[in-house]
């Protein structure tokens, strides 16, 4: 079988979705863990976001995270493009639609709405890049001095960005979409890659539910606690 045949087959396309999906899941662990450093201010009054700014500086300057970032972007774009292509191809297979729909009787609404949830995430991602990633990487931003080094004041940027109620609202909505995307996606990815042993599936399902609730919750708490000055 040729590579092109494999990757254009319906299982091959899903294989890409599953692999890139799991890559994104791993990235979320790192991203959530790193950003949770903003909560250091709750433990140490004199932190003022230093721990977070240092961690972000490390990620932006060290070569390993920078290399991983390239892989991450490839993964994200593959996931988005393949996801949208699959969504449209699958939608086109029915022809005339039913008068009465099977709906939630046979499957969960979010498992049927992965394309929609993903699109909400995509819109959020664009906003998120414009607000944080592009200034930090390319267009430049305010700096602070920590331990004699000039580093980007991402903590400060978060504080000002999340003053706006609509931004907080959009971030929270995105976190809810992420939760539902993962509630189906986490375990679906492992099935797509061929996992079928009940012993493992039980673990994957449990982990998936915990992950889908915890990670989006940690993310959602960031804009909320900055907006209400619980952190700062």
């Amino acid at each position: 079988m040729k590579w092109s045949e494999f990757f254009t087959s319906s299982v091959g396309k899903k294989f890409i979705m599953g692999l890139t999906g799991i890559t994104l899941i791993l990235f979320l662990v790192v991203h959530a863990g790193l950003n949770a450093c903003i909560f250091a201010t709750l433990l140490d009054e004199n932190d003022h976001g230093e721990m977070f700014n240092k961690a972000a500086h490390f990620m932006g300057s060290n070569v390993i995270p920078r290399l991983l970032e390239i892989g991450l972007f490839l993964g994200i774009f593959l996931h988005i493009i393949q996801g949208l292509v699959l969504e449209f191809q699958n939608r086109s297979k029915r022809g005339i639609s039913y008068k009465v729909n099977y709906g939630n009787r046979g499957s969960k609404w979010y498992s049927r709405s992965m394309g929609l949830l993903g699109t909400i995430l995509l819109i959020f991602l664009i906003l998120h890049w414009v607000q944080f990633w592009i200034p930090s990487r390319f267009t430049g931003m305010e700096e602070v001095t920590i331990d004699g080094k000039q580093v980007h004041d991402l903590f400060g940027l978060m504080k000002t960005t999340f003053e706006e109620p609509w931004v907080v609202l959009v971030y929270v909505l995105a976190c809810i979409s992420l939760a539902y995307h993962l509630l189906h996606g986490f375990q679906s990815a492992f099935r797509t890659l061929g996992l079928r042993s009940n012993r493992y599936l039980r673990i994957v399902k449990g982990l998936g539910i915990a992950f889908s609730i915890l990670i989006p919750l940690v993310f959602a708490l960031m804009p909320i606690s900055m907006h209400f000055h619980w952190v700062g």
Partner: peptide, 25 residues
């Protein structure tokens, strides 16, 4: 293509398990 929603398994008159799809993958 399959997105593992499980609607197939829920209607199958012979109760074929969706685990078979993971095996197929």
């Amino acid at each position: 293509s399959c997105t593992n929603t499980g609607a197939c398994e829920a209607v199958c008159p012979k109760e074929i398990s969706i685990t078979n799809i993971a095996r197929l993958n």
